[in-house]
């Protein structure tokens, strides 16, 4: 019950902040041709940790982003997922196609097992918050683990895992929300 109340308070706080500070205009940084951003990524699935840190730069309609996992880096025995991806906006401030690469580092039997995961997806802007200083994007992505490898562990390419079966171990589908402080330059 306590957890439910905490969840309700969080939802109420998000709605209040969104209503009070949100505006249906692009974030201020979108007015500049170039922008830098730093913020957080929240996910709906367990392909990675639910909360990670993001940062990136935008050059016109192209953005280059990095997502790191501070909780995994802090705890040596946890899974760490690091993403590098590009977003290409069809038109400025509109939806964007994504392509990226995720390296998952999983603690297996005292070693690190690396999961190499290219992913594709789409993202779209949501209303800017805090009077245009904070931008938000929502999206979905599909990742495929193309190979698993690590010191002392077998190298397993995706074609050995029957990833195209009805219930596959190789694909991750996830929805995400990015909330970033952005500044044009």
């Amino acid at each position: 019950m306590r957890v439910a109340w905490r969840g309700a308070w969080i939802v109420a706080a998000v709605i209040t902040v969104t209503a009070a500070t949100g505006r249906a205009e692009p974030a201020r940084a979108e007015a500049s041709d170039r922008a830098v951003s730093v913020g957080g990524v929240l996910r709906t699935d367990l392909g990675t940790e639910l909360y990670r840190i993001s940062g990136g730069m935008r050059f016109g309609r192209l953005a280059v982003n990095v997502v790191v996992d501070p909780s995994g880096m802090h705890a040596r025995k946890k899974q760490i997922d690091t993403d590098v991806f590009v977003e290409w906006e069809r038109c400025r401030g509109g939806w964007a196609a994504m392509f990226g690469w995720r390296i998952g580092s999983v603690p297996v039997l005292g070693e690190r097992y690396y999961h190499q995961k290219p992913f594709i997806g789409v993202s779209a802007p949501l209303p800017a918050l805090f009077w245009g200083h904070v931008r938000t994007r929502f999206g979905g992505e599909l990742a495929l683990t193309v190979v698993k490898h690590g010191h002392g562990l077998p190298t397993i390419p995706f074609w050995d895992e029957h990833v195209f079966g009805a219930q596959s171990n190789g694909f991750n589908f996830g929805l995400f929300l990015r909330v970033e402080l952005a500044k044009g330059f």
């Binding site: 392909g47 899974q79 297996v108 698993k148 991750n172």
Partner: peptide, 16 residues
């Protein structure tokens, strides 16, 4: 357990 950790561990051991 399915929802306490990211799923890399079970993916790894299933593959192994």
């Amino acid at each position: 357990h399915t929802s306490r950790l990211p799923d890399g561990l079970q993916q790894s051991f299933y593959a192994l």
